[in-house]
């Protein structure tokens, strides 16, 4: 069943249309990738879902609730956590403070502590560095922190914006292995936005290709990997 449904979503920046009527859905338990080049509207799509940008039209339904015009901090409370492009960690706060902020809306201290242990189990590096300011972490560690922090909200769905950005290939592979693990072992529903189509198609079940604010192709990730046009345009093969 679709946990997230996007119907005819439109967003404008001033007079310039960024999203021109997007339609897609994400089923519960799925990893869905949104791939496309720079400026295609990938980040805007995530920001629209999270309530960071205003919509010019269309509808966003999350788990049966219309969240099109909800405020960002309310949407987090409904169970959508976004990991921002460029990580968006609070550089001057410690790793632990960052993780606790992820659980900002939650009340049950016992559960928060359990989830913290869970994040440390997934990313042992973060536990080693828990008292360091987040700004002193390496890019890869910051990405782990950003994902761990999003998990601390106990979301029903994760939005990941360019987790590969600025990271060395080895680190990218490691991050994507963790993303797959999150989905397989913890049944996390994930909407993944990536320029690195290869990694995105490796980690996802289905994918949408977005070009200048519109979905142009869709299919299972296995299909898209073998699609000649996709291979030429996005996989460089």
């Amino acid at each position: 069943m679709a946990i997230l449904e996007i119907n005819d979503l439109q967003v404008n920046y001033g007079v310039i249309p960024a999203l021109k009527g997007l339609n897609f859905y994400v089923d519960e338990g799925e990893v869905v990738a949104l791939i496309g080049s720079n400026g295609a509207g990938k980040t805007t799509t995530l920001h629209a879902i999270s309530g960071i940008v205003k919509k010019a039209g269309g509808q966003i339904i999350f788990d049966g609730t219309d969240i099109t015009n909800r405020k960002a901090h309310k949407i987090v409370g409904l169970g959508i956590s976004q990991v921002q492009e460029g990580r968006g960690v609070f550089a001057e706060l410690t790793v632990l403070e960052n993780l606790r902020l992820g659980a900002y809306l939650r009340k049950n201290k016992h559960e928060i502590r359990e989830d913290l242990m869970d994040v440390f189990e997934l990313f042992p590096r973060l536990e080693e560095r828990k008292s360091q300011p987040a700004g002193t972490l390496s890019g890869g560690e910051q990405q782990m922190l950003a994902i761990g922090r999003a998990m601390m909200a106990k979301p029903r769905m994760l939005l990941l914006d360019e987790p590969s950005m600025g990271l060395a290939p080895v680190v990218v592979e490691d991050i994507f292995r963790k993303i797959k693990m999150l989905n397989k072992q913890r049944h996390m529903t994930i909407l993944l936005v990536e320029q690195n189509a290869q990694m995105a198609l490796y980690a996802s079940h289905r994918a949408y290709v977005i070009e200048t604010g519109q979905i142009v192709t869709t299919g299972t990730s296995a299909e898209l990997k073998n699609n000649d046009e996709i291979r030429k345009a996005y996989l460089g093969l």
């Binding site: 960071i52 901090h73 956590s81 921002q84 968006g88």
Partner: peptide, 21 residues
């Protein structure tokens, strides 16, 4: 206080934590 410090570093990131900035 932590919400204030987070907001001062990035309003968008703070909102994504569920903070009413």
């Amino acid at each position: 206080g932590v919400a204030m410090r987070a907001t001062s570093q990035s309003i968008t990131s703070a909102q994504l934590m569920g903070i009413n900035t």
